[in-house]
């Protein structure tokens, strides 16, 4: 297993947010974490990379327990994280954004250069010197993914990559994710958009009120409309 998460419990202040969340991701797999707004998707991702202070549970990445490591150490081991609201550095140019994400090459993992990312997202290649703040939402989404790829991760957590994007851009995004999969990356996406998730995912988990309610292949989810209707506001 690439990533094994078990017994994850997270709190913000007095509020208990995640309850014994567990999921796993195999090498080269694309897994979708589905759930409504506020179901706990973002908190799950933030907990995995160590951005939530009050958290218990085990996170094994490539067999190593990373649950006690600070965020930057987790990321340096090849676990990339793309946050939901993109959070690009608006004052920095496209190239400088990539510089921040740059990490040394990792054995057995695809090595990314700005040039290779421009191949993946041709739009970005045309605006290398443009500050991130002057880019459209779709371009920013490409930039934030590219920036994380510069760290040569072997697994990427993508938080709501389709949110607020025009359908045309969402299609491009799906293509890019499938390309990343072909490069051997494992990918976890969090999504509300089931349509988009179906295009790219092998398996899915459904999270609701901080608990995992369903786990199975996309075909199994398809065969279970009652599960879908109960937990996803589609």
């Amino acid at each position: 297993m690439k990533l094994e998460v078990s017994g994850l419990n997270s709190h913000y202040g007095p509020a208990h947010i995640l309850f014994d969340v567990g999921f796993e991701v195999g090498a080269g797999e694309v897994v979708a974490l589905l759930g409504r707004n506020g179901a706990g998707k973002s908190t799950t991702f933030r907990s995995v990379v160590g951005l939530v202070a009050q958290r218990t549970g085990q996170i094994r990445f490539e067999g190593e327990d990373v649950s006690r490591l600070p965020t930057y150490e987790v990321v340096r081991r090849g676990l990339g994280y793309v946050p939901e609201d993109r959070r690009i550095f608006t004052e920095l140019t496209v190239e400088e954004n990539f510089t921040v994400g740059r990490q040394p090459p990792r054995a057995g993992v695809a090595t990314w250069t700005p040039e290779r990312i421009y191949e993946l997202f041709p739009n970005l290649g045309e605006m290398r010197k443009r500050p991130g703040g002057q880019m459209s939402g779709g371009e920013q989404q490409m930039l934030t993914i590219g920036r994380t790829l510069m760290g040569n991760p072997s697994l990427v957590l993508l938080d709501e990559p389709s949110e607020g994007l025009a359908p045309k851009i969402v299609e491009q995004m799906a293509d890019a994710i499938l390309t990343m999969k072909r490069e051997g990356l494992s990918i976890v996406i969090s999504e509300q958009n089931l349509h988009f998730a179906k295009l790219i995912s092998d398996r899915a988990y459904i999270i609701e009120k901080g608990r995992i309610r369903f786990s199975g292949t996309m075909a199994e989810l398809e065969a279970n409309p009652e599960v879908r209707d109960a937990y996803l506001a589609v």
Partner: peptide, 11 residues
């Protein structure tokens, strides 16, 4: 601009 994001990129 964003300290947490820098940490999330391995810094």
């Amino acid at each position: 601009q964003d300290r947490d994001m820098v940490a999330s990129l391995g810094v």
